[in-house]
Design a protein around this nucleic acid. Structure first.
Lengths: 173, 173
DNA sequence: ATAATTATGATAACGATTATCGCATTTAAA
DNA sequence: TTTAAATGCGATAATCGTTATCATAATTAT
């Protein structure tokens, strides 16, 4: 679900993000540690909407001694630095996003296979602003999520897994 | 935050919702109990986006023996029946909505006072549908939340409480 | 190098929600 | 209206994601 890549482009991006993070860390008088560096590098090599567990799994491949707490703490720092956004899609766990194609975007979430698509539309943004203004409301941030079935419905990788999980959960209702 | 009312109109609405719930309960072969009846009546007398704790508090005024578990269970049944919607606004707890002015609506959430406003705009809905279709995505449901500052910013009731809470939480950051 | 500060890792604590289980209540049938 | 089977209840233990704690380790400025 969250793959790791290795290309020159990615290396460059990771270096840029890492130095931006270093700058943040130093500006706050915090310390630069091996663990933080590892976590940041691994995080920005991953694609998608990454959960703590997914990240920890990848991090442990590099340094198995790094634990939950440090991953949580570093993710909080990444969010505080503005390099990463925290999202919650209602499955009860936080997901983190640091490599979007577009700066701001909304989400379409497939209920069948769990895939998450990003999209952006300026008319949508403008309309929201207009509606807010009409109500004397000043928007700081917003969240739009469309839940449904994605175009790959026939080839959804996790279709059967999800169905099995549903059937399991439904036991007793 | 979630007040209880007592008017003839409300009585009528509560009766209608309750009978709809009974219908659902019976169609599923479940049992009609005093507790469920109490919880449903109390719930539909309340306004706003109600948390489990808020509901339990009100329920206990009618029947103090009713516990957490039954309130949770009944809320799940209400959601399953389609009479109630579950919402999560990112403060970590579920809120339930059973008496909206409009059938579907989106939300503006004031970060200062915590007030939640509902709104609906057909152009917004249409635009979402259009964008989904362009991506071959079929929307089942969606969620749009605008977070910001509301028009009552000067008179926000909970302004100070929130500020105090923030200050408390910020200890250690 | 040293001292002060901050971070780490293991795990306990937390808060919301869910599961468990013995007992009570409801329902359908007799 | 009793009876028997099924379902629901209340109290609370368990769970899950996340946060706090604390002794030890690493980093930084001197």
């Amino acid at each position: 679900m969250a793959s790791v890549e290795n290309t020159q482009e990615v290396d460059q991006l990771v270096r840029a993000k890492e130095s931006a993070f270093l700058e943040f860390i130093q500006s706050k008088g915090l310390k630069t540690t091996r663990q933080r560096s590892t976590i940041v590098q691994v995080f920005f090599r991953m694609r998608g909407h990454i959960s703590v567990e997914e990240l920890l799994r990848e991090v442990k491949l590099v340094n198995p001694k790094i634990g939950y707490a440090t991953v949580y703490r570093t993710l909080h720092l990444l969010v505080a630095s503005g390099l990463v956004e925290e999202r919650r899609f209602g499955d009860g766990l936080a997901r983190y996003e640091g490599r979007s194609e577009v700066e701001h975007h909304d989400h379409m979430i497939c209920l069948e296979c769990g895939q998450i698509f990003e999209f952006f539309n300026p008319r949508l943004e403008a309309l929201q602003e207009k509606l807010a203004e009409e109500n004397n409301f000043k928007i700081y941030r917003h969240r739009l999520e469309l839940y449904g079935i994605c175009k790959d419905v026939e080839s959804c990788q996790h279709k059967k897994e999800m169905a099995a999980r549903k059937a399991h959960k439904a036991t007793g209702g």
